[in-house]
């Protein structure tokens, strides 16, 4: 083995990156290994010394738990609506703002206000606004969209779509900005050339805009899967630890939280967390493969 002495600048380099290395090992690698270990134990946080090895029992229990799959179904139901809504709204506003670029600053600011508001505050306000006595339902009654006030939080199917609408309001500003950044960087001459060829609006949109926005689209969808499937605060604010009546707002993270801190079953909760992490990771990879098909790796 050849011993190479580190140069002064290499030593400085190690010094500069050391905070991240320490953080990565202590707060990411170690907890990950711990989660893995705990998922094979029957462990109570108050008496960790009494932990018992149970093999794959926690995993089997998690995978066979109907409530876990109910929560997975709920979050997919929610995300299916949310992704479509926020994508369309975000892209539409990016296209509109691009037309008024220099004077659009004030709109950008306003549309971004929901993003900087805390979920806690936004959700409480939203709950009152969307309540049976609130302004939204009053308006819907007036316009004949609904016949009578709806207690949506205690229905079987409404909580997830309503929260999807709330989240689209809260987060579309981010998508709008990301798409706007992409739109501005598209070479204007492409559109001019298309105009000369007599291409219509739709043609330009699908042949130029969408393909050239691909990096942004990939980023948005990927981050969406990672963050969206981890929804927690929104449902905690409106429902109990088990997602209200019918468990119709139970999300996987909420369930994990309930398992850990209501039932005190840390091993179970660890297995649930890992299972969810595994699902998110698989989905992300599949999605990236699909979206990157046909393009070369950069």
């Amino acid at each position: 083995m050849k011993h190479r002495k580190l140069s002064q600048r290499q030593k400085w380099g190690i010094f500069f990156i050391s905070p991240w290395v320490i953080f990565f090992l202590v707060f990411q690698i170690y907890p990950f290994l711990l989660a893995f270990k705990n998922s094979f134990l029957d462990i109570n946080i108050l008496q960790p010394e009494k932990a018992r090895f149970v093999g794959f029992w926690n995993w089997i229990q998690a995978a066979a738990d109907p409530l876990f799959w109910k929560s997975m179904f709920n979050i997919c139901y929610n995300q299916a609506i949310y992704i479509v809504l926020s994508f369309i709204i975000g892209l539409t506003f990016a296209l509109l703002l691009k037309e008024v670029l220099s004077k659009g600053g004030i709109f950008r600011t306003i549309y971004f206000l929901p993003v900087i508001t805390s979920i806690t505050v936004a959700m409480i306000v939203f709950k009152y606004i969307s309540s049976p006595t609130g302004p939204i339902q009053a308006l819907m009654l007036q316009w004949g969209m609904i016949k009578e006030p709806v207690f949506w939080a205690s229905t079987k199917w409404l909580p997830m779509p309503v929260i999807a609408v709330f989240n689209s309001w809260k987060w579309f500003g981010v998508y709008m900005l990301i798409f706007l950044g992409g739109l501005v960087s598209i070479n204007q001459q492409l559109y001019e050339a298309a105009d000369i060829d007599g291409a219509g609006w739709l043609n330009k949109f699908f042949r130029i805009t969408i393909p050239l926005l691909k990096p942004q689209i990939v980023f948005v969808l990927t981050m969406n899967i990672i963050n969206g499937l981890q929804m927690f605060t929104e449902v905690l604010m409106t429902f109990d630890l088990y997602g209200g009546r019918y468990n119709s707002a139970l999300t996987p993270v909420l369930y994990m939280y309930a398992k850990a801190f209501d039932k005190m079953e840390m091993g179970d909760a660890s297995a649930l967390g890992l299972l969810l992490g595994l699902i998110i990771y698989t989905l992300t990879m599949v999605q990236m493969k699909l979206l990157n098909r046909g393009t070369e790796e950069v």
Binding site: L229, G273, I280
Partner: peptide, 16 residues
Amino acid sequence: SMMIPGILLTIPTYMM
């Protein structure tokens, strides 16, 4: 490491 779902680490971090 940006791709690691933070939630995966919640319970073990709490125990830590």
